[in-house]
Design a binder for these strands. Sequence first.
DNA 1: AAGTGGTCTAGACCACGTA
DNA 2: ACGTGGTCTAGACCACTTG
Lengths: 242, 242
Amino acid sequence: MITAGKGAMPLYIQIRELLIAKISKGDWLPGDSIPSEMNLSQELGVSQGTVRKAITELVEYNVLRRKQGRGTFVSNHDSQRALFHFFHIVDAKGHRVMPDSKVLRCHRRHASHGEALKLKLKDRADIIRIERVRNLSSSPTMIETITLPGHLFKDWDELDSGNLPNMLYELYEKQFGITIHSAEEQLRAVAATKHDASLLNLQAGTPLLEIERVALTLNKSPVELRISRCNTKKHHYENTIL
Amino acid sequence: MITAGKGAMPLYIQIRELLIAKISKGDWLPGDSIPSEMNLSQELGVSQGTVRKAITELVEYNVLRRKQGRGTFVSNHDSQRALFHFFHIVDAKGHRVMPDSKVLRCHRRHASHGEALKLKLKDRADIIRIERVRNLSSSPTMIETITLPGHLFKDWDELDSGNLPNMLYELYEKQFGITIHSAEEQLRAVAATKHDASLLNLQAGTPLLEIERVALTLNKSPVELRISRCNTKKHHYENTIL
DNA sequence: AAGTGGTCTAGACCACGTA
DNA sequence: ACGTGGTCTAGACCACTTG
């Protein structure tokens, strides 16, 4: 509950955490509006300014979105947001390119030691592994290997695995109630294997940019491991440091 | 001047821009404290809360830094900040490693077409070019080629070019009054040239991570072009998406 | 003790969207 | 016309640093 007084956490932080809990629990779903600042402040017995400060921080974290005159909404993963926020590969001119995807394989497996570690699962836990090739500017440019914890995606097998959507984060949210909120990426240069080379129409040994991403929910629990190998002849990874 | 009334920009934005101007002009230097919130609000004829909101945004942009009980200060480039904010290469465990550097060459040249474009200079403008090798965990891991606009670094030649500091951004700030505030990076995988290979003790053709960075001041004017080629066997580039 | 930033309140008015 | 978020004020008290 909200407590005031010396030594207590600031009110706006308590309220911020309370709002996060509501969203994590699913009381308010992505796309929903939350109660107005006035309503919240009356329910919680604090001033509007204090509620406002809590909400402001969550807007900065991209958890909430304000719309003047309409209300405050839980963020959702439209393709726009996925493309702008999580997809960092652009063409030589710096333009974002919408990738398309062809699924090569999609099956259940046991997690390797490395996968279990990165997804915080037990060794040999049930996982789903997807392999796909992505075209950028209509030429095959990336190979992705995606690993999902099986227990979070129970009804996965009912999907048409040959016809998965391009932007998986939207699927995770709409079909499984899992919202990806942040991610940690590691980038390396690697040599293309024969397998890579045949899929991307280049020679084995060609340098590829490898992006290893762990995607996290709002509570920082890992939900997806994604390894992308990317031909950077005509595209590159863009990062802005503010 | 600060103006109120309909159709005008919000006061806190006018104040924010006014503070930025003061800092860009050099009225307040990195490390200096700025006037207290109360003083500013009285001088500008607005409430303390409005000044506070302007300052809060600049703290979020890393332009200012608040210290409770002491005051508000213009950010400066201690090595800590440079290391945490601008250096994204970490070891296999994800720990940041302090690099050391050996300068190979440092001389004045004419800008190539590409360099001129990226630094917004005229073709064949006067530039300074530095080449150095950086050790991480005591093995040579990165080759850096740094290009600086000559007119911004007039007295560069008086420096001992064989003995440049590790963290150049601190030097730019202290010796030349230029503070790097943000940067745009492009990452690619490339094959090591013979030259790269001999410097990094590996075979020509080995995949390297190439990082091309343009560093910008607070006004977004480009100040440095830096191309780093990095052996990612034992280290990688880390990026967090929030 | 005095001065700084940090939190919180209560209330005013503005800008926007919907009905 | 009404309800929403957005800006702004004036003033209170707390937490921290310095003299």
